[in-house]
């Protein structure tokens, strides 16, 4: 744990879902941890997925320089997007390797896993307000393959009133813009269908997942609201009268 954390926001939080970043900011502030948000670009994975190696390298190198410098006093780097996390930790390294990239890779943590380890060390504030919700958790592939599966759920279980009615670790078929493309429409839907069925079977009040793309796919298929676990956690720290979301 470090006294300051460097935050790689990712495009989804920055442009489409600022509530995630705001929630993280509030949670960390509560724990006396200052957030640093250095200059950054898209992590580069969407470029890789569209065959643009040069574009991906340009962004990756830019981010590595920026994150390396910001974290150099010994600060950890935190992410709320599983794909950005995986790009910085693993996917980019075989192609855009450098000493700095290897160092940054070792400093990167998923926010949920980070809070989980804070709890193990007795450093997580558990002064929660009740949040009576039936929650379904979808574990995104890019966390699952990094073996981050139980941590987000274990943190949410600390909140009084929350009932985890189901956990799903299957692929939802979205994968960034993949599931949005017309050419992949049917395939993406077929893959997502199993997740949708499992979710609706459990009749949750809300679905939680870290991945913005998964959120769109599952919301599109079930009509049930999807939020990031960090947002849920921050709501539990917030008195009912001040809550903006629930």
């Amino acid at each position: 744990m470090s006294e300051k954390l460097v935050y790689f926001t990712g495009c989804f939080t920055n442009y489409y879902n600022p509530d995630v970043g705001k929630a993280l900011f509030a949670i960390l502030k509560r724990h006396g941890i200052e957030l640093i948000v250095p200059d950054q670009k898209c992590c580069g994975m969407p470029m890789m997925a569209n065959g643009n190696r040069e574009g991906a390298k340009k962004n990756f190198d830019y981010n590595i320089d920026s994150l390396y410098e910001a974290s150099s006093p010994g600060y950890d780097i935190i992410t709320t997007c599983p794909s950005c996390n995986m790009m910085l930790k693993k996917e980019g390294l075989p192609f855009f390797e450098s000493e700095k990239a290897r160092t940054v890779s070792k400093r990167v943590y998923d926010a949920g896993a980070y809070l989980y380890s804070m709890n193990l060390k007795g450093k997580l504030d558990k002064d929660f307000y009740e949040l009576p919700l039936k929650v379904f958790y979808h574990n995104p592939c890019h966390l699952k393959v990094q073996h981050i599966t139980k941590e987000p759920v274990e943190v949410l279980k600390l909140i009084p009133g929350i009932e985890i009615v189901g956990v799903n670790k299957n692929c939802c078929g979205m994968s960034g813009s993949y599931g949005m493309k017309k050419v992949n429409k049917e395939r993406s839907k077929e893959i997502g269908q199993k997740v949708w069925s499992e979710v609706t079977l459990h009749k949750p009040d809300i679905i939680t997942t870290e991945c913005g793309g998964c959120g769109l796919q599952i919301n599109g298929g079930t009509g049930i609201r999807v939020v990031h676990p960090i947002v849920l956690l921050n709501e539990a720290y917030t008195p009912v009268r001040d809550r903006k979301i629930f």
Binding site: T9, Y15, P18, G21, K22, G179, M180, K181, L216
Partner: peptide
């Protein structure tokens, strides 16, 4: 982009 795709909403004020 598939016309039925569930697209995200742009925010005028970004997180950063």
């Amino acid at each position: 982009i598939n016309r039925d795709a569930n697209l995200p909403t742009f925010h005028r004020e970004t997180f950063r």
